[in-house]
Design a binder for these strands. Structure first.
Length: 636
RNA sequence: GCUGUUGUAGCUUAGUGGUAAAGCACUUGCAUGGUAAGCAAGAGAUCGAGGUUUCGAUUACCUCCAACAGCACCA
């Protein structure tokens, strides 16, 4: 007797070996029809696998959360077969599922183009119609190696060779087509009638190593219902409209041009936004006992040699010459300069923690292919600060930093923050007990304020562990913004010290930390998260005052003047245009408040308020309107 | 940096082996308009840069530059 425990706790008994499909069938026909795979003792397996022991199972159907992953994996195999049928000399590499879809990497002499997508999709549909069973087989290493070597599938051969010698190799066949794959897969290529679409093609290095050959990666997506596919495509189309580069142009915030790639030309409105963010940060940092400084951009090579940047970071530095051909570099970071300030005069333990902040203008020669609007630039300003403290202070400083960061992110409307905790890498400076202390301090601090975080084992810098705070853009791409890095090395290299309670010279620890990260990147993310509809306190233009006809021009001007005197960012539109035209234009520019005045408003000293996103008009007295707007526009 | 795609007026796009089209924006008239595009006229582009083929290249080919997607990189 085989006892199979179902998710509801009930036990089904079978007198002989039973497959997942049979279990499903014995429960109901409709379940069997909608089943994809089976979870046996919490591990996903093929439905065809025979069970001859007691276990608990869960049938994974179309409706299960795991379903998408399964069909996408199926679809990846189908796509690979399709590509090899159309381009027979193509070699296959790997084809995993990813968020919202899957990809497969190919090596082919022909380069695939978007024109081939339709062909491949058509072929995929044919393969799905053939409805070949996914047949799972276990091969020994020799057989597998021989098979793939004979087929000249060099990538599969390399994968097999990299696997443990005693590991079983699973092979999946669909008709004639064979792939090395862990599985699981559903019953057959056409078992589930899912919807799919090839999205894009791009290069990708074999095994993610830039020294290896670049393969062609075809990205695609698959969904169980056609409507989900349509929704997904719509979601992407909508997201693209929120692209900060597009908005930057439409809202006249900034531009970039060939003569200074990776650097931003901030326009008046964009610079207003930038300045407000900066003023807000200044206020918050001031409240948190940071002292702001300003250090040079161009610094002699000598300091970079002492700090270690010349050796480790030179590739990314812009190097120029000073007098007598003396090499100088544009600073890529502010830390060495801050240490110079710390070192002026003698510091006492009473001065610690010493929090030194700077809106530090940095330049890094980033690889051309990595540049991306405001998100990845070559010239940027960090809301940087270095906290010089004792080892014992790492914990409390981290905790208050995390609190401050969360508060600030919330003010900007970011409530979901991904935190990565990166601990000691293999190559590192400093002894293990120091690392223990630093890692514990960081981890305890995030735990103390109850923030969820992911671990990034070995991802720390050579000089210390770190916390990274990651935000995502409208397409879900991740951008590291805030960071907190513990550093034992730089104070040593640059000989920073303080005098402790007993009068001896001691090295401080340095915490490198940024909240927004780079002003540019953060504003880019902010633009995408708001879609350009900035909250009132951030909007470059808060109020547009517009008249209806000539007779109300003077009244409009008077209101404009009042707004300006109240420090509201107001503009006036008294162009000789129709009201509809002006409303449309200012709405498209995403100005939060339009004040409309005509004959009636003028007569009663009222204004008509129209808020972005609403077609309602609110007629209130001028005084009340301005008071209300002023109250709503304060910086948090 | 690597692979692929793209590059036409300020913006968005059409198009062609014989120096180019449209909408919006802009300028000028007319219209004096009550909450998302009033009417008309005008001006505006050596088609990313350089080269090759050609009688002739914005169009084909090559090189470069930049942008976009992805990969790699992000101390």
């Amino acid at each position: 007797m085989i006892n199979i425990t179902l998710p509801d706790g009930s036990i089904k008994k079978y007198s002989e070996v039973v497959s997942g499909l049979k279990i499903a069938e014995s429960i109901s026909q409709s379940l069997a029809k909608n089943s994809l795979v089976i979870k046996i003792n919490n591990k996903l397996q093929d439905l065809s696998i025979n069970i001859d022991y007691d276990c608990s199972v869960e049938i994974i159907t179309k409706k299960s959360p795991e379903a998408l992953d399964i069909i996408r994996h199926d679809a990846a195999h189908v796509m690979a077969e399709a590509v090899q049928e159309i381009f027979p000399k193509t070699k296959v590499a790997i084809g995993p599922t990813i968020k919202d879809g899957f990809y497969y990497d190919f090596d082919s002499d022909v380069s695939f183009s978007p024109d081939d997508f339709k062909k491949i999709e058509k072929k995929m549909s044919q393969i799905i119609k053939r409805n070949n069973k996914f047949v799972r087989e276990i091969w020994d290493r020799k057989k597998a190696l021989k098979f793939f070597e004979d087929k000249n599938e060099i990538y599969k051969v390399e994968i097999i060779k990299s696997l443990n010698e005693d590991e079983d190799l699973t092979i999946y066949k669909q008709g004639e087509w064979v792939d090395l794959c862990r599985g699981p897969h559903s019953i057959s290529t056409g078992f589930i009638n899912y919807s799919f679409k090839i999205m894009k093609i791009a290069g990708a290095y074999w095994r993610g190593n830039s020294k290896n050959k670049m393969l062609q990666r075809i990205y695609a997506t698959a969904w169980i219902k056609e409507n989900d596919l349509i929704d997904y495509i719509n979601r992407i189309t909508e997201a693209e409209k929120r692209d900060h580069r597009k908005l930057g142009n439409e809202l006249e915030l900034f531009h970039i041009q060939e003569e200074s790639i990776g650097n931003i030309f901030w326009h008046p409105k964009g610079w207003t936004l930038y300045r407000i963010c900066q003023e807000y940060m200044r206020k918050k940092l001031n409240q948190s006992n940071y002292k702001e400084v300003r250090t040079p951009s161009l610094i002699d090579k000598r300091l970079w040699e002492e700090s270690g940047h010349w050796e480790k970071f030179r590739e990314n530095m812009f190097i120029t010459q000073g007098e007598d051909e003396k090499p100088m570099a544009l600073k890529p970071m502010n830390c060495p300069a801050h240490v110079q300030i710390f070192k002026q005069g003698i510091k006492s333990y009473r001065d610690l923690p010493y929090r030194m902040s700077e809106f530090g203008s940095c330049h890094r020669n980033e690889p051309s292919g990595s540049l991306h609007g405001l998100m990845r630039v070559r010239g940027f300003t960090q809301d940087d600060a270095h906290i010089f403290c004792t080892k014992d202070q790492i914990n409390s400083e981290t905790e208050s930093f995390c609190k401050l960061l969360t508060e600030i992110y919330n003010d900007f409307g970011f409530t979901k923050i991904n935190i990565r905790f990166a601990d000691r890498p293999e190559k590192r400076a400093g002894d293990d007990s120091t690392w223990d202390q630093a890692e514990n301090a960081l981890e305890n601090a995030i735990k103390a304020i109850d923030l969820p975080y992911q671990k990034d084992p070995g991802g720390g810098a050579f000089y210390g562990p770190k916390l990274d705070f990651v935000l995502t853009d409208t397409l879900g791409r991740e951008w590291q913004c805030g960071t907190l890095q513990v550093d034992f090395v730089l104070p040593e290299r640059l000989d920073a010290s303080y005098i402790d309670e007993r009068g001896s010279k001691v090295r401080p620890v340095m915490l490198h930390r940024a909240i927004l990260g780079s002003m540019e990147r953060f504003i880019g993310v902010l633009m995408e998260s708001t879609g350009g509809k900035f909250p009132l306190w951030l909007a470059p233009i808060q109020i547009m005052i517009t008249n209806i006809s000539e007779e109300s021009i003077e009244y409009a001007k008077k209101i404009h003047e009042i707004c300006i005197n109240r420090n509201l960012r107001a503009e006036i539109d008294i162009r000789n245009e129709q009201l509809n035209y002006k409303i449309r234009e200012h709405s498209n520019k995403k100005i939060p408040i339009i004040l409309v005045v005509g004959r009636n408003e003028m007569k009663d000293q009222n204004v008509s308020i129209r808020r972005l996103g609403s077609e309602k008009q609110e007629i209130v007295t001028l005084k009340k309107a301005i008071d209300e707007i002023e109250n709503a526009s304060y910086m948090p």
